[in-house]
Design a protein around this nucleic acid. Structure first.
Lengths: 221, 221
DNA sequence: ATATTTTTTTAGATTAACCTAAAATTTATT
DNA sequence: AATAAATTTTAGGTTAATCTAAAAAAATAT
């Protein structure tokens, strides 16, 4: 029904319009699909014919309900496979993206639902990203960026807003993983950098750039 | 390096030449790839340029060492994923083929080796087919067809020579699975049909057609 | 040994997904 | 508001994998 390539376009349009909450530009799609704008134009016309997107020439694109449900199914598969790779096969969280990019296109509803059950119906993937259910419903999120948290507050790391292997490896190196407890001990006005306690003892310096990409929730005992 | 399609051709050429132990004909390949002979000719020329097969026009095709190693890697992945689907996700043995046909093309050595370990380094898939190791080495086989076994001998079912869902479901229905103990109690000359005891009690009629497709080993206590 | 049939290959098209270069449209700047 | 700049689309081409129809080679039968 939908090809590997079409699914990638839908997934990327979904992500871009989730960020901006409005029409997505041809160039933005071209950048993430690693193709040229001309190719994107072609594909948008085709996806539009298939009722997967709403597309007006020169006016950007957005997903239809149908397109969104396809995108969410791909995202569901991607995140479930990431859980499998980390929880069952012992991969690190910075090693699973490329493999999941392939696995997300395996076409079998039965497989997805059995995998979900096998994994214990996880609500979040190894990066803290929410896993939509079979109807495309996302678990509720109430995270904030670490950069928005005040001094003294105790929070728990629940996700990352940036997924590059380099960033993920850096976090692992300084002892930050999902579930880590963080308390801000110092805030430096001039560069917005932070000093934090990670867990009980480790004290660490965290740049604003990093803090912006750390998703946290207030600690619940 | 090798495309999805190329891998399928190599896999099919491997299977056909394992059966006949000689050059494989264009038509035979066309039948299994569900394409036309003309398409196969094209692809064989291409695979030949890539040193994956040895191909002389009008003289059939066989795999090179390189081609065989690619084919064996695909077969390894197919069979490991089948074990995963049955052992971990609870699929029946007649439901896994199509899904494994997709999973076998996922490209990650690391994934295959970790999956192998996760599954406990199985030597056979859910149909009793041998799983080549990472170097393409197959576990040794010493099975016979049930049709070659004499009256009174106690054997264990270790595989099937036919993989259709219909056949597999039939076996499940009469209580035959890998590991079943079988003793032939009667042989009927005129149609070569058998009466057998399955396990301790079940007595069953088995046609020659079915017996030919049941792989057994003599029972070891 | 020649003729017929079958198999295989070549020639020429098609489709999906991409490309470059040129044209059209929108956005930004004076 | 008119022009310049940026973005987007169209036009025309390429590649991988397929097809049909016709030609060539091999196998079979008289």
């Amino acid at each position: 029904m939908t090809s590997f390539t079409e699914e990638n376009y839908l997934k990327i349009i979904y992500k871009l319009s989730a960020e901006t909450n409005s029409e997505v530009s041809t160039n933005a799609v071209a950048e993430l699909t690693l193709t040229k704008a001309a190719s994107v134009s072609d594909m948008l016309r085709k996806l539009s014919e298939k009722q997967l997107v709403k597309y007006q020439k020169y006016q950007g694109v957005r997903l239809t309900e149908l397109g969104e449900s396809v995108a969410l199914k791909v995202i569901r598969k991607h995140r479930l496979w990431e859980v499998f790779l980390v929880e069952k096969l012992g991969f690190n969280w910075d090693e699973v993206h490329e493999i999941a990019e392939q696995l997300e296109h395996i076409d079998s509803e039965e497989l997805v639902e059995r995998l979900d059950e096998f994994l214990g119906f996880p609500k979040f993937d190894p990066h803290g990203d929410p896993i939509p259910d079979m109807n495309g419903l996302m678990p509720e999120l109430r995270h904030q960026c670490l950069s928005e948290i005040g001094i003294g507050q105790l929070v728990v790391m629940v996700g990352v807003a940036e997924h590059s292997a380099a960033f993920l490896q850096y976090l692992a190196k300084i002892g930050l993983t999902l579930g880590s407890q963080i308390k801000i001990t110092e805030f430096n006005e001039f560069d917005k950098s932070l000093s934090v306690n990670i867990g009980d003892n480790l004290s660490h310096f965290i740049s604003h750039e990093v803090a912006k990409n750390l998703l946290v929730e207030s600690f619940k005992h």
